[in-house]
Structure formats: structure tokens, C-alpha cells
């Protein structure tokens, strides 16, 4: 890494750490921004880098929420009795019970979602192109409907988690740093992953899967591993969201296919598919755009969002990073190199 990049990364990291103190009124907003960045980056792992456009990644978000809730509550009480009580009985969580539930819930949600990704991937990775998108969307919608009819986890009313035991503002800060921490770890992980042979292999699957098979790549193994890794991070942020929101229900919050499930795709399309920075840039722009229109164009916010999607898809098909790569290929190392000047 050269010196200029190092300074840039240190600056971004510093901004990440001090942002909630600079803008104390926007702590929840900033936490949501990190959530958008994480789901966009993980969507791009399969959608951008591997060429499998999943519309079902929201499944892991919702499943992460429920797994975390079941773990956090199940550690202390019987889950069925807890959801049955519907406010009629008081359940108390000590500070230690809350934090152990949070920790184990987040980790457990990540692991559970990884395993589910392998199982669902095994069934759906035979589908290509739009069929994969619709197949995974079906999984997410079906999961939402199933969970909303499952009384043990609260059915359509959803489930309420214990409230953060300490000061409310400190709680907001905690959730911001949890999201930011997962985001930073994810970014570093992906920067490394895309530089390995694994990154090359999933790019090859994106560009021509049949060729990759003919060259002897273990294509299914790469696809399952990639989705399992993506699901791990989505499941974890789903779990963190569950604790942040305290109460959530299956269709509008957990398996919210038309909100977050589509937003993550729009973020990546806006920023540029198949690049490391594209999803980050796209998520930031999208989140700012969404918050501004939701505040100042109320009533027209969905129209504005639709217009943004249309403009992106029609005029910036490769997103911002793709547009830059097209205009300034030399910035990305795309160049003709004469033999005598090369070091090889």
C-alpha cells in the first residue's frame, strides 16, 4: 500500500470513529448508513463479483434478526412462554444476560445464516441469470410468510427484545460502533479476498461460467463459499439491527423485500458493480438521497427514488465507478505496456 492510500484509509477510519461525536443528533442515521454499506458490499460479493444477482439476500437479514432474538431470549427464558405473554408478564434481563445475549446472538446469527446459505445455494445455484434472482426472491418472501405464521417466535406481531440496560444515548453509540466495526472488518476482509486467487475465481465465474468449468474450476464450491461468507455478515448486521430496533415484525422489518432488499441492489448499481469502492460510494449517496427526499419531498419520495433508479439504469449502467473506469482507464491500470519498459 502506498503512502497516499495509507493516509486516505487512516482519514476514513478517524472519521468513522469520531463521526457520532461530531453529529450526535445523527447517531442512528449514521448507524443505518453503515448498515447500507454492509448490505451493499455483501450483495456485490455475489451480484457484482460473481455475477449472481440475488434478490434474496434480505432473507439472511431477517433470519439473522430472528436467530439473535431466539438466542438472546432462549438463554434466559422459554421462548414460547415469552412470546405468548404479550405484555401480560414481565421478563427481566440483567445487564450480563443482555450483553451475553447480544454477543452470542450476533455470532450465532452469522453462523446460522452461513449454513442456510450453503443449503439454499445448493438448491438455487443451478439457476442462472434472472431465474436465480427470482428464485432467491421467492425464498425471502416465503420465509417472511412462514415466520409470520409461526407463533413460537411471535407470528405476525413480531417479537420484542430486551431494551439496552444502560443510558439511552450510550446505547445508540454502542450500536453505531457495532455496525461500523462489522463494516470496517468486512471492507478489509473483502479487500484481501479480492486480491487472492479466490477473487479471481469468482470473477471468472461471472465472466463465463461455462469456460470456468471447462478449465476445471470447482465452480459450485466457490459459489457456495462466497454466498456463505456474504450471509455471515448480513446475518450479523440483521442481529445487530434486531437489538437496535428492540421490536420487529416479520414482513415489514425482518424480511423487508421491497425496502432494504431492493435498496442494497440500488446502492450497488449506483456505485458500480464488481468494484470494491462502488458499493460504499453507492450506499453513501443512496442513503443521503433517501434521507433528503424522505424529509423534504414527503409524498413524492418514492417517485424521486424511482427516478433515481431509472436514471442510473438508463444512463449509468456501470455505476459511478464503472463510469470512472470508462473515462479514466489508466487510473485502474488498464493500459498498453511496451515490452522494454516493463520490469518483467
Amino acid at each position: 500500500m502506498n503512502k497516499r492510500n495509507l493516509i486516505l484509509y487512516i482519514a476514513i477510519l478517524t472519521a468513522t470513529v469520531i463521526a457520532p461525536f461530531l453529529f450526535p443528533d445523527f447517531r442512528t442515521q449514521l448507524a443505518t448508513l453503515w448498515l447500507m454499506i454492509i448490505v451493499a458490499l455483501t450483495w456485490d460479493m455475489t451480484g457484482g463479483q460473481m455475477g449472481y444477482n440475488s434478490l434474496g439476500n434480505i432473507f439472511f437479514y431477517g433470519t439473522g434478526m430472528y436467530v439473535a432474538a431466539v438466542i438472546a431470549i432462549g438463554l434466559v427464558y422459554d421462548v414460547g412462554a415469552y412470546t405468548d405473554a404479550a405484555g401480560g408478564q414481565i421478563f427481566i434481563f440483567t445487564e450480563a444476560q443482555y450483553f451475553s445475549g447480544l454477543f452470542l446472538g450476533v455470532i450465532g446469527a452469522g453462523l446460522f445464516c452461513s449454513v442456510t446459505a450453503v443449503v439454499i445455494g445448493y438448491l438455487t445455484f443451478g439457476l442462472r441469470g434472472p431465474y436465480f434472482a427470482i428464485g432467491t426472491l421467492g425464498v425471502a418472501i416465503a420465509a417472511g410468510e412462514l415466520v409470520s405464521n409461526w407463533d413460537w417466535v411471535g407470528g405476525g406481531q413480531g417479537i420484542a427484545l430486551p431494551v439496552y440496560p444502560g443510558d439511552f444515548d450510550i446505547g445508540k453509540l454502542l450500536f453505531y460502533y457495532l455496525f461500523a466495526g462489522v463494516g470496517v472488518v468486512l471492507f478489509i476482509f473483502l479487500k484481501w479476498l479480492y486480491s487472492t486467487r479466490f477473487g479471481e475465481a469468482i470473477n471468472a465465474i461471472r465472466d463465463d461460467e461455462e469456460k470456468a468449468e471447462a478449465m476445471g474450476l470447482h465452480t459450485l464450491r466457490y459459489k457456495l463459499t462466497t454466498w456463505a461468507m456474504a450471509a455471515f455478515f448480513v446475518g450479523m448486521v440483521g442481529a445487530i439491527s434486531a437489538f437496535q430496533l428492540i421490536h420487529f415484525e416479520p414482513l415489514e422489518t425482518a424480511y423487508q423485500t421491497i425496502n432494504l432488499g431492493i435498496f442494497m441492489v440500488v446502492c450497488v448499481l449506483l456505485g458500480g458493480k464488481g468494484t470494491l469502492w462502488g458499493p460504499v460510494v453507492g450506499a453513501i449517496l443512496f442513503h443521503v438521497f433517501k434521507e433528503v427526499t424522505w424529509n423534504y419531498l414527503l409524498g413524492w419520495q418514492w417517485v424521486a427514488l424511482g427516478a433515481l433508479i431509472v436514471v442510473t439504469v438508463v444512463y449509468f449502467q456501470d455505476g459511478i465507478m464503472g463510469w470512472l473506469m470508462h473515462r479514466r482507464p489508466e487510473w485502474f491500470g488498464i493500459r498498453v505496456e511496451e515490452k522494454d519498459t516493463a520490469g518483467a
Binding site: 486467487r197 479471481e200 475465481a201 470473477n203 471468472a204 461471472r206 465472466d207 463465463d208 461455462e210 469456460k211 470456468a212 471447462a214 478449465m215 476445471g216 474450476l217 470447482h218 464450491r221 464488481g274 491500470g333 488498464i334
Partner: peptide
């Protein structure tokens, strides 16, 4: 059939024999 969005060097590197490669 080549991998269109990858450069020539990446196309070559991913073609290294996978029979000699563990997961």
C-alpha cells in the same frame, strides 16, 4: 471464450491448473 472483464494477466492466472490446488 475468455473472461471479458478481467485483463489478460488475470485471465492467465486463473487458468493455472486447479488439479494441483487445494481449497
Amino acid at each position: 471464450r475468455i473472461y471479458g472483464k478481467m485483463n489478460c494477466v488475470q485471465n492467465m492466472l486463473i487458468s493455472l491448473p486447479h488439479r494441483k490446488m487445494s481449497f
